[in-house]
Simulated assay, not measured.
Amino acid sequence: MKQAAAKIMMVRPAHFGYDPSTAETNSFQQTEGAEQQYAIQRQAVEEFNGAVATLRATGIDVVVIDDTDEPKKPNAVFPNNWVSFHDGRVILYPMLAENRRWERRMDLLDELAEAGVPVKEVIDISKYEAEDKFLESTGSVVIDYENDLAYACLSSRTHKDVLNKLCELNGYEPVLFESFNKEGVPVYHTNVVMCIASKYAVICAESIREDQRFDVLQTLKTTGHEVVEITMDQMYGFAGNMLEVENQQGESVLVMSQTAYDSLTEAQIQCLSAHSKIQTVQIPTIEKFGGGSVRCMMCRVL
């Protein structure tokens, strides 16, 4: 598979908001103003619709699916956590929070098939939930598709046994490490720590356990990636939460939030711009109360 996604799925939220059941393991979520539920949901939909319009205007192929009204799923805007697509093979994942398990929708797969996404085989590994072992798809795992490597930082949402199962299914080699936030707590998802594109990788190396740092960086360099290191503060600005997409003109586009872009230095921007067109979207409400950014909103389907 090519590294850059050719088509993405995004889910328009029906009940977006701060979620206490996920906040315990996600230090990126904020609570200030969380009681204004109606206003938050309205603003999240506006941000979502604006992001879709911006991406489509850039020539990116976006399939939009509407979240269902019931049951209420405050994190449905982040579909990359429960499913992944591999040339017609679809994998469903074990999720830590019970209300996130409700996001796994077979009807959604039917809609994607109607939109031209190949769905030939569905493999469900969510059974690991019964063992309290979780892996939240491409939130937990950042995949180097061209080199068959699966990067993952261990956390309560990322268990090595499930990672090994994913690697077994797809012929990946795991690159396992530990990554910590400012409080010394494991970072909940690998895709806030790093992004892998065709020719470069963005990574918060300082968050990685010191004795593992060199090996992770060396693996990225050995596979031909120019490494762009970001700071811990930039990671909190979602500068690791990016996705390379190929637009319909065949151009490489690196999608990030405006928050992420504003955190970057001029030198970092120049480095990334040498390889990809940078496209930003404005999603401050989703970032604040959801604790995830635009990469979490984009699920690669092709």
Rank of each mutant, 00 (worst) to 15 (best):
V202R: 06
I203N: 03
E210P: 06
T223C: 10
I196V: 06
E210M: 15
L217H: 00
L217S: 02
C204E: 10
Y200D: 09
I203D: 08
L220W: 05
H225K: 15
V193N: 04
I196R: 06
S198L: 02
K221W: 04
V216R: 00
V202D: 04
A197V: 11
E206Y: 02
S198H: 12
V216G: 05
D211P: 07
M194N: 01
S198E: 15
L217I: 09
V216I: 06
Q218F: 10
D215I: 08
M194K: 03
Q212D: 03
A201E: 05
L220I: 10
I208W: 02
V193T: 15
E206C: 08
V193W: 08
T223D: 11
S198N: 04
Q218E: 15
I203T: 02
T222F: 02
V193R: 13
V216E: 05
I196E: 12
L217K: 07
A205F: 00
C195Q: 13
V216P: 01
T219D: 12
Q212S: 15
Q212I: 04
S198P: 04
F214G: 09
C204Q: 08
C195D: 11
C204H: 06
L220F: 07
E210S: 14
Q212K: 04
G224R: 08
R213Y: 08
V202W: 03
S207T: 12
H225C: 12
T223Q: 14
A205Q: 13
Q218R: 15
A197N: 00
C204Y: 00
K199Q: 07
C195G: 03
Q218I: 08
D215G: 15
Y200M: 10
R209F: 04
R209M: 10
E210C: 09
K199W: 00
T219L: 06
V193Q: 12
T222G: 12
M194Q: 14
V202M: 06
D215Y: 10
Q218M: 13
V193D: 14
V202H: 00
G224F: 07
I208A: 06
E210R: 12
A205K: 12
G224P: 03
T222N: 12
M194V: 01
T219R: 12
K221D: 12
M194W: 02
E206L: 02
F214P: 12
T223S: 14
G224H: 07
A201D: 00
R209C: 12
D215Q: 14
L217A: 11
C195F: 11
K199T: 06
R209T: 14
G224D: 07
T222A: 15
C195L: 03
Q218P: 13
Q218H: 14
M194L: 11
L220D: 08
S207V: 06
E210K: 14
K221P: 09
V202N: 00
I196D: 13
I208V: 09
H225M: 13
D215H: 09
F214D: 15
A205C: 01
Y200K: 05
L220N: 07
G224A: 05
T219E: 14
L217G: 07
Q218C: 11
S198I: 10
F214C: 14
C195P: 01
D211S: 10
I196W: 00
H225E: 05
K221H: 08
Q212F: 07
G224N: 04
L217V: 13
Q218D: 15
Q212L: 01
E210T: 14
E206S: 10
D215S: 14
I196K: 02
A201Q: 04
